[in-house]
């Protein structure tokens, strides 16, 4: 069996091993982790004919540089508008390249987007926990964060010359500035004015942005008499408001329970586009009914049918 070894020459913060996620363990305090942008991750795997949840590397705006120390492997890069430099030249993400021994691959921030995915044609070797190598960044559980000096080993590494070249970047993979939410589950703790601000006023993402979530800057949303509601289950996309009135969107590594009131929850279909917004970019929320949210989810799973599950 052929094997490829990539040496990490540089890795920015928040660069980690991810697979489809650690699903089904919320009741034990274990969040799903997995890719921030599930659509881009799935497209990268699909480009290589990989199983939908195959492990790869999630790359933040900090970028990643690897040198191929052994073997050769074809790699798909999808998500955001990153810059990719390889032996075949300089281009954008949404591409498939082959890296051979002695060659360098540089992935760095480009004109848009916040996350991109590097998926190998082969099996990325990482230590699983509960059947998944997805990294839970706050605890380090799973395949782990990447740092300079580390090696990435890919077993069953394949070279797939016929899929090399550009990948189509779907419209749904672009950053989404208009994001649908379902109000609640604790919107009752907020005044009508606060809810009107959430769904009317522009908010900006801040630099307080990692895999657990992102704090937003905009009109304050002070909850009324809800500073100590009993800790309750949280889903990805929850917009929770701490005592200071600043909303935060909880993302892939969100805590599974929490006692701050959640004013609204972003619909699943819009999360991939939301996470591709960068700090300081503007987002506007609009409310949809739960029925409309289910409709959006079905539309999205239909659109993704050839690629996922």
């Amino acid at each position: 069996m052929s094997r490829a070894v990539l040496h990490v020459a540089q890795a920015g913060p928040h660069v980690s091993v991810q697979d489809g996620g650690r699903l089904g363990w919320l009741r034990y305090g274990v969040t799903e982790s997995g890719p921030m942008d599930r659509l881009a991750f799935a497209r990268a795997n699909a480009a290589l004919g990989n199983p939908a949840g195959a492990a790869g590397i999630e790359i933040s705006l900090g970028g990643l540089t690897v040198d191929c120390a052994e073997g050769a492997v074809t790699l798909a890069i999808a998500g955001g508008g990153f810059v990719v430099e390889s032996a075949s030249g300089t281009g954008g993400s949404w591409t498939v390249v082959t890296l051979r021994r002695g060659e360098r691959l540089v992935i760095r921030r480009g004109p848009w987007g916040a996350w991109t995915y590097l998926q190998p044609a082969g099996r990325l070797v990482a230590r699983p926990w509960l059947g998944s190598v997805a990294t839970h960044a706050p605890s380090g559980i799973g395949g782990g964060m990447l740092a300079a000096g580390q090696e990435i080993v890919i077993e069953d590494a394949r070279v797939l010359q016929k899929v090399e070249g550009g990948l189509p970047c779907p419209v749904a993979a672009r950053p989404r500035h208009e994001v649908a939410v379902v109000l609640g589950p604790q919107d009752r703790f907020f005044t009508r004015e606060a809810i009107a601000a959430l769904v009317g006023a522009p908010y900006r993402l801040t630099d307080a942005y990692d895999r657990m979530g992102v704090r937003l800057r905009g009109p304050q949303l002070v909850p009324e008499g809800a500073l100590s509601i009993p800790s309750e289950p949280i889903l990805r996309g929850s917009i929770q408001v701490a005592g200071d009135g600043a909303p935060a969107v909880l993302l892939a590594d969100h805590q599974t329970t929490g006692g701050y009131p959640k004013i609204a929850t972003i619909v699943s279909a819009h999360l991939d586009g939301f996470v591709q917004l960068r700090p300081h970019e503007v987002v506007r929320f609009h409310a949809v009914t739960p029925e409309e949210a289910v409709g959006l989810a079905r539309l999205r799973s239909g659109r993704r049918q050839p690629f996922v599950r």
């Binding site: 305090g29 839970h136 559980i141 800790s231 599974t256």
Partner: peptide, 10 residues
């Protein structure tokens, strides 16, 4: 309940 982090039993 469990919460906060993996295996944190309240």
């Amino acid at each position: 309940l469990y919460g906060f982090a993996p295996g944190y039993a309240y």
